[in-house]
């Protein structure tokens, strides 16, 4: 069963079976990490363009490696935020990339729905690498993969997402994926950073971190954009850290075996202490590795690949 759509715009648009197919496909992809020669011929002759309107190191590098290990030709275009405001036309850019032969366009953009506009404009497969506060599907896929790898399942787990839910595409994609796979999701953060009516997405909401951590199997800590403080959404970094920072003391009160995730890059000492981020409970570095495997799986499936067993050895 391949994916139904030519694009990966969000987990919102995937069926549970499709998400599981991607996760299953990522397992043999990860195995490539153990090889001396990290190369699959799958995408030979295909061109992948990373079109990034926001600065990104790990997501862009992760996509780049995923493409290269599958033998695609990979090009990066870093476009500054200001050029969008100056009126650079996204549709025009998308058509240009298609004329240059792009088979995959991986787009990171500060505005929700930008990948949808590109997907409507071109025949190439469009992969959303983060659109505003909307979705970041491959981040959620790697989070799901990491949870499954560490804890063996997702169904029935209690997952708490902590931080700036309002502005977080990671939170939204995680919610879609986790709820579809049967987890119980709680979001936690200051009231000013919880978007309205988010409970309708199938999650519990609390502003009390202690309550949110009490019976969690997984805690996903979001990066705090420090500039939000200047917009009056919380009074100070100090108070945020005091109320919502994940510290050793707080982790000690969690269930034994709790899994801690962070999409990175972390503000160490703000939303999570270095001690926690580097502890055995945390999977911060595995997440990065798993990210490449999940993105390889997405590229493989979007290029028409079928069952995981068919992946060439």
């Amino acid at each position: 069963m391949p994916l139904r759509q030519k694009d990966l715009l969000g987990l919102e648009y995937l069926e549970r079976e499709e998400i599981e197919l991607i996760l299953d496909t990522a397992v043999p992809m990860k195995e490539i990490f153990t090889r001396d020669i990290k190369k699959l011929p799958t995408l030979r002759g295909k061109t992948m363009v990373n079109l990034f309107y926001e600065p990104s190191t790990r997501t862009r590098t992760s996509f780049e490696l995923a493409g290269k290990w599958m033998s695609a030709d990979v090009t990066n275009i870093a476009t500054s935020t200001s050029s969008v405001v100056k009126g650079e036309n996204l549709k025009d850019t998308a058509r240009t990339l298609e004329a240059l032969g792009a088979n995959f366009i991986v787009i990171r953009h500060q505005m929700a729905g930008a990948p949808h506009l590109v997907a409507r404009t071109v025949k190439a497969s469009v992969i959303n690498a983060g659109d505003g506060r909307h979705e970041h599907p491959t981040q959620a896929l790697l989070d799901l993969f990491t949870i499954r790898e560490r804890l063996g399942r997702i169904e029935g787990l209690k997952v708490t997402i902590v931080g700036d839910i309002l502005h977080s595409r990671v939170a939204r994609s995680n919610i879609w994926g986790l709820v579809k796979l049967g987890a119980h999701v709680t979001v936690c953060g200051p009231r000013t950073l919880i978007p309205p009516e988010i409970s309708r997405m199938g999650v519990e909401v609390t502003c009390d971190l202690g309550e949110a951590l009490a019976d969690a199997d997984v805690v996903n800590v979001l990066r705090l954009q420090l500039e939000r403080q200047r917009k009056g959404l919380f009074p100070s970094i100090r108070e945020y850290s005091d109320l919502y920072g994940l510290t050793r003391e707080r982790v000690d009160k969690c269930k034994p075996g709790v899994l801690i995730l962070h999409p990175g890059p972390a503000n160490l000492g703000v939303e999570i202490t270095e001690e926690v981020a580097e502890s055995p409970s945390a999977a911060v570095h595995e997440q990065v590795t798993n990210g490449v495997a999940c993105r390889m799986a997405v590229l493989y499936l979007l290029s028409g690949g079928g069952k995981p067993g068919e992946i060439a050895a």
Partner: peptide
């Protein structure tokens, strides 16, 4: 509009 759909779509409300 600020509400469920702004939340779901990630658009400022």
């Amino acid at each position: 509009n600020e509400g469920y759909w702004s939340t779901r779509l990630g658009l400022p409300g």
